[in-house]
Design a protein around this nucleic acid. Structure first.
Length: 467
DNA sequence: TTTTGAGTTGTTCGA
DNA sequence: GTCGAACAACTCAAA
């Protein structure tokens, strides 16, 4: 007996899957396997919601595989041991997986490759990190030149269609997925490749044409909402990029063209942060920028809890955090506002916020999440001014003009008129009583005064950049 | 090696 | 209400 093992990690799809294609090209039977790695399951960055999304994705993938004559093998344990056993059981053969960029994944794969015939394929990114370097051979650390270099490379070939049939082996023991981690069927983000394709179609047919203008609006479904699917490879980066390219080619007006262009740019940001993590793995532990490693962060558990639970008294921040807790997703603009509030207004270490987001986001990805947090904290690759402090009131007025995002996630503010929705503490006391929303009783008073907090942050950053 | 232009997503202040 | 300048100095990328 001889078989090819397709080791699935964050590529839960049959279409446009180079690792699967490489395994099938061996011409032997295929064993699709997912390994529950206790180290990853116990990580402080693992999140219940994301694990449940992953398991639902595995069930969906299993169903897709069965339709094609195969079935998913799920095993628990150290990947090296599991794969070793599996190769032994199946009489040896080949082993393929999609390359990943995180330190843990890379060390794990290097260890396995020393002992087993593991071959890694590209697929996570359109242009793998090691292919994009400056003329002197060092990696880019600024987005704009990176994106120019990225665009100067040949556009990738069209996505590979899914295989119609899979050469199968007699059934192999399947371990049941933990039932405790059940992704609710009512989740706004049902897992699976078919769902990812459905969303991609919806997005490319209408939303993308307004994406350049509406992607920042928190009260509108103006984004793709595809991040959880890209996170687990239920959709490939190449499929996304081709969708952007086709949308641009088919655009009949400037706005549509700009929308497609803006979305491709976001995909390049994803590639950029993957490359940053690949080339500078230390960013998971510390500031990218050496000059900003001594900011005097506050140790303030009560303030952190208020932020995490969405009761800071700043409606747009609270709406953001409650959206995250309720759905496992947060609008990108809201992520920046919430992150800015934690790091600047509360002066709490970005690493605490990074971990919290990892624990709650369906799309929690080490590279993108870290890049976003370091950008907001001003410690990252972005060389822009450190004194850029988001004003939660202005951001709310600008990107949630009628307050509908706030009202959706902070129901106690439903009755508040538009003019006070982003600063309810400015309401006259009699109006508060009249509307049944008394500050300090029905909704918190602001945790900090933004103007004072801003001054404190500027001073702290000034101090932090001295050394 | 030196020089030059530029850097996602902002806010505030004063005219 | 709108608009441009100031916010500081630094680092990066490429010529």
């Amino acid at each position: 007996m001889n078989a090819s093992i397709w080791w699935i990690r964050r590529d839960l799809r049959l279409s446009d899957n180079p690792a699967l294609a490489a395994a099938l090209a061996q011409g032997t039977a295929l064993i699709p396997v997912f390994i529950l790695d206790p180290k990853l399951l116990a990580s402080p960055n693992a999140g219940h919601k994301r694990l449940a999304f992953l398991f639902a994705g595995l069930r969906s993938l299993d169903a897709d595989l069965r339709q094609r004559g195969s079935g998913l093998v799920v095993r628990q344990g150290d990947p090296l041991e599991v794969l070793h056993t599996l190769l032994h059981e199946t009489g040896g053969g080949s082993l393929f997986a999609e390359a990943d960029v995180s330190s843990y994944a890379r060390r794990r794969d290097e260890r396995i490759m020393r002992q087993l015939p593991l071959k890694l394929t590209p697929g996570l990114n359109i242009h793998p990190p090691e292919t994009l370097l400056k003329a002197d051979g060092t990696p880019y650390t600024v987005f704009t030149p990176f994106s120019q270099a990225w665009r100067s490379l040949a556009f990738p070939g069209r996505p590979i269609p899914p295989p119609a049939h899979l050469p199968t082996l007699p059934p192999i023991a399947l371990q049941n997925l933990p039932g405790s981690l059940c992704h609710p069927s009512s989740s706004p983000y049902p897992a699976g490749e078919a769902e990812a394709q459905r969303r991609l179609a919806t997005f490319s047919q209408s939303i993308i044409s307004r994406y350049a203008i509406e992607r920042d609006r928190m009260d509108i479904d103006g984004t793709s909402g595809l991040s959880p699917y890209l996170r687990f490879g239920m959709l490939s980066a190449r499929q996304a990029a081709w969708t952007a390219r086709d949308a641009e080619a088919q655009a009949t007006d400037a706005a549509s063209r700009q929308g497609a262009e803006a979305w491709l740019n976001e995909l390049i940001w994803r590639e950029f942060y993957a490359a940053i993590l690949y080339h500078f793995p230390y960013v998971r532990q510390m500031s990218f920028r050496l000059g900003l490693r001594s900011i005097p962060w506050r140790d303030a558990p009560a303030d952190f809890a208020a932020w995490a639970e969405g009761r800071t008294g700043y409606p747009v921040v609270d709406a953001a955090m409650r959206q995250l807790q309720a759905t496992g997703w947060m609008h990108n603009r809201a992520r920046m506002i919430a992150a800015s509030f934690l790091t600047k207004d509360l002066l709490i270490d970005w690493r605490q916020g990074e971990r919290f987001f990892m624990q709650h986001l369906l799309d929690g990805d080490p590279a993108a999440n870290n890049g976003g947090w370091q950008w907001t904290a001003g410690t990252g690759t972005d060389a822009a001014p450190y004194f850029r402090v988001f004003n939660p009131i202005l951001q709310g007025r600008k990107f949630d003009p009628q307050g509908n995002y706030v009202r959706r996630w902070v129901p106690e503010l439903t009755a508040i008129p538009n003019e006070f929705i982003h600063s309810p503490w400015t309401m006259p006391a009699n109006l508060q009583h009249h509307l049944g929303c008394v500050l300090g009783k029905d909704y918190p008073t602001p945790l900090v005064d933004h103007d004072a907090a801003r001054q404190r942050a500027l001073a702290a950053y000034q101090k932090g950049r001295k050394i």
